[in-house]
Simulated assay, not measured.
Amino acid sequence: MNADGREGIPEGWQRAPLGELCDIQAGGPALRRSETMPDGVPLVRPADLHHRRISAEPGMPRVAPERARHLHRHRLAADDILVTRTGTMGRAALVTTNEQDWLYNSHLLRLRPHDPAQTPYLLAYLTRRATAQWLESRAVGTTGMRSITVRTLSELPVTLPPLDQQRDIGAALAAVDEKIRAHEDIVRTTGALREALSDLLMSGRLPPRP
């Protein structure tokens, strides 16, 4: 046990419930098809969270501007974190300036850290396997429809090193995430190149070379 009476964490570290570190808010209401339009405000869904970032896919729904004006409470800001509240637990993504003022749907929870300097560390902590297991064990509902509440996420115990170490840990894991995304882009581009090459070779438009 440490000198301060806390067991299982290094000297100088502490534990705090997530709700003391962030403002946590549930997602926006369900929208009717008539409230969406091609050039509206993007609405983020769990399916749009990939490798701790938001991926703006072509099929992302968009909310009509007049409807979006009434959903200002659910506007995203840079350094927010989105967490899935239904389906697969432990998926989270950072909101960057590219997604500023977008909306998020009712299957997500929005975290707004009180100290933005903690955002990278909290994002990494939320996407740990142990965190996903903790959330899964406390999810409610039937199989396939399980979900977590704002209260449950608020109670998540977070292990906190000193702030300078939080920054270093968050930066190191963010750099790994960037490499993952870069490799995925390479795989995607190479796959598209292979498809094009296959069509050219098998149509006789491009002679094969040894």
Results as ranks from 00 to 15, higher is better:
residue 40 G to P: 09
residue 91 R to F: 03
residue 25 Q to E: 08
residue 87 G to Y: 02
residue 88 T to I: 06
residue 71 L to A: 03
residue 6 R to I: 12
residue 34 S to K: 10
residue 66 E to G: 11
residue 52 R to F: 04
residue 4 D to L: 00
residue 14 Q to N: 08
residue 72 H to A: 12
residue 42 P to I: 01
residue 21 L to C: 09
residue 54 I to K: 12
residue 26 A to S: 08
residue 45 R to I: 01
residue 4 D to Y: 04
residue 82 L to R: 05
residue 84 T to C: 05
residue 43 L to E: 11
residue 48 D to K: 01
residue 91 R to S: 13
residue 80 D to L: 07
residue 15 R to V: 01
residue 43 L to K: 08
residue 63 V to M: 04
residue 72 H to Y: 07
residue 77 A to E: 06
residue 31 L to P: 12
residue 24 I to G: 05
residue 11 E to I: 14
residue 47 A to M: 11
residue 81 I to Y: 09
residue 38 P to T: 10
residue 34 S to E: 12
residue 85 R to D: 01
residue 22 C to L: 04
residue 21 L to Q: 13
residue 76 L to P: 06
residue 23 D to I: 10
residue 88 T to Y: 03
residue 76 L to M: 13
residue 23 D to F: 02
residue 90 G to D: 08
residue 45 R to T: 07
residue 58 P to M: 12
residue 35 E to Q: 15
residue 71 L to F: 04
residue 51 H to V: 15
residue 30 A to W: 04
residue 74 H to Y: 14
residue 91 R to Y: 04
residue 18 L to K: 04
residue 72 H to E: 09
residue 64 A to V: 01
residue 39 D to A: 06
residue 31 L to M: 13
residue 40 G to A: 03
residue 55 S to V: 14
residue 86 T to R: 04
residue 55 S to Y: 15
residue 59 G to L: 06
residue 13 W to S: 06
residue 32 R to C: 04
residue 57 E to M: 08
residue 32 R to A: 14
residue 58 P to R: 03
residue 12 G to E: 04
residue 64 A to C: 08
residue 22 C to H: 06
residue 73 R to T: 08
residue 27 G to L: 02
residue 11 E to P: 03
residue 60 M to L: 11
